[in-house]
Amino acid sequence: MSGAGKEIVIRLRGIVNRLGGRTIHDHLDLDVYRGEVLGVVGGSGSGKSVLLRSVVGLNQPQQGSIDVFGQDVLNLEEAALRALQIRWGVLFQEGALFSSQTVAENIQVPLREFTSMSQALMNEIAAMKLSMVGLPEDTAQKRPSELSGGMKKRAGLARALALDPELMFLDEPTAGLDPISASHFDELLRRLQQSLNLTVFMVTHDLDTLMATADRVAVLVNGRLKVGTIDSLRHDGDPWIQEYFSGPHGRAALAS
């Protein structure tokens, strides 16, 4: 798929990651374009999350370069990296809410750190973000330990959206949710992505989520990436990709 004429938000070149002597990523190249939802899939232990952690700067790859918004993330100074981090939001697998704070305080952490809003305005904005992600207002005063898995993810999403990032990283956004909650989450994601004009880098292995939200898919097999639309990847010869899209689960998801 040629990306001519589209603005590249994330550009990975020659990424090599080795963990414990095992090569997880073997010279990966990847472009993510503005306004698209890219789904990264792969088997357990194939290094999907490591890739996401590399892009957001939590993991230093052995080789390769990572550009986000045209800036070299790996060789950026502290202050420039902070400025860049404001422009993206990350939703971790379990939400990663700060457990000592209420949900509202969690959402206000970035606001308090990077703006000088009054407390009253921050409360209003926290309430707005909560309703944006479909949480009832009484969630604001609750602590993360009082929330269910799906609510934690929504609250985590609200925190990631606090400063209106242009780019969102989602790590397994629907893992551990029941199918109904998962499909609601997919809808929410799609709606927010369109209305906020987000670029989304999503690690998942949920085929339904992929069908519902992803514009393009990057499959991580044997340390290499194969990128394309779902339709083009279905005809790929790789056995894992065949199994993934054409196994019983895959067929059911494609048929729906």
């Binding site: 509202a104 209003e124 309430a127 944006m132 604001a140 005063q141």
Partner: peptide
């Protein structure tokens, strides 16, 4: 025009009044 969807989300979604803090 390009901000219409954003405002629509904020207006449509936000029916509850701001939370009161203790």
């Amino acid at each position: 025009q390009r901000y219409a969807p954003l405002l629509a989300v904020i207006e449509a979604e936000h029916v509850v009044m701001p939370v009161e803090f203790e």
